[in-house]
Design a protein around this nucleic acid. Structure first.
Lengths: 194, 194
DNA sequence: ATCGTCCGGTCATTATCTTAAACATTCCTG
DNA sequence: CAGGAATGTTTAAGATAATGACCGGACGAT
């Protein structure tokens, strides 16, 4: 999680792709043109607010700007510690008022393979709440250890180790660990959630 | 291009999802804990370098952090000016040493529909160069106006208005406007490039 | 109650970014 | 060649963010 690209070079590339001079961009973005120069030459690390204004001038979002910094896991084989931890990301993007500790770790590059396989850990009581993202995708999983209460579109079922589920993720769904022990699930989803 | 979320709230959510205190995160991220507090309370707009350090502590990339800011076009109908301008993004991410002016505008939300339809404009001489991204996807297009020289895996062909192409984008490919007039193409790709 | 430790928040100082104005270059054009 | 208009760069000021020390509250253990 530490590759970083050359912000200045990237901004410069985007600016010239848009066919703008530093001054033209500065006007659109409502920043002094010196700042464009400073950022492009990496003389400063701009504040988020400044960078946002600048990028608005070339019609690029922050997310798109930093896209290349995304970690691209290697493969096709992964050590246990090479799984990509998506806990914070999923917890904030996909889960509503989840409670309790849980962890999600992804195998490889879900995007390019169009397949997201996750190793999921639910501590006792952990609850995703009603899942926010309801993708047009398919989703299934296998309970490796412990118990998992799965709710799909008003059907509730407690799955134990060895049992499994599979459904269309457009249906509202929710996961919970109703037991006093840790629950471990391996799940798969295509196309990927995030 | 101007929705902005609450950076502080988002960081806080991610931090607690990771089960860390401000001080714990501060140590991991190598930042004074006061700064975590300041950022979470939106007392400052952190510099990119600072935010990057903080996010490394929760294992989230900049791109992921700003993901929700991405523009999600409405639909299912789009006015001409509602097409999403991807010029800078594509030019920098997908195209190598392209030359000349070109523009790419996307119809709707390619990701969720798994289908990317683009309105492409090539000014005279515009050349994508060898395309960098060679996705496992399919790609086709129709020349609406002007001429387009398409190179696919060593096959070269000049298409005129009314003609079209379709190929597997894993093959190396390249587009060029060899004429003195503007060229307009409507293309489609699944799954999307970006 | 009284430590000890953790928590998040605040303060003054320092370092950094931001700004506007001046500067240097190039490329036209008369 | 001189003037003009564009370009990107540097400068010195003012504004803002980053830092480390400090504060009061919450919680447990003694």
């Amino acid at each position: 999680m530490d590759f970083q690209f050359d912000i200045g070079a990237r901004l410069k590339a985007m600016r010239s792709a848009a066919g703008l001079s530093q001054r033209q961009l500065a006007e659109r973005a409502n920043v002094p043109h010196a700042q464009i120069s400073n950022v492009e030459k990496n003389k400063v690390s701009p504040s988020v607010s400044t960078l946002r204004r600048i990028l608005s001038g070339v019609g690029v979002s922050m997310a798109d700007f930093f896209e290349p910094e995304r970690e691209v896991p290697p493969g096709p084989f992964f050590e246990a510690d090479q799984l990509l931890d998506l806990t914070s990301k999923i917890a904030v993007n996909a889960i509503g008022e989840g409670t309790g500790r849980m962890a999600f770790r992804q195998i490889g590059d879900a995007r390019s393979h169009n397949l997201q396989i996750l190793h999921e850990v639910y501590e006792p009581g952990a609850d995703t709440g009603e899942t926010l993202l309801q993708h047009p995708s398919s989703e299934g999983g296998y309970v490796v250890e412990g118990e998992l209460e799965v709710t799909v579109d008003s059907e509730i079922r407690v799955l134990r180790a060895g049992e499994a589920y599979l459904f269309d993720s457009r249906q509202p769904h929710r996961f919970r660990n109703p037991s006093d022990n840790r629950t471990i699930v391996i799940s798969a989803c295509t196309p990927p959630y995030l």
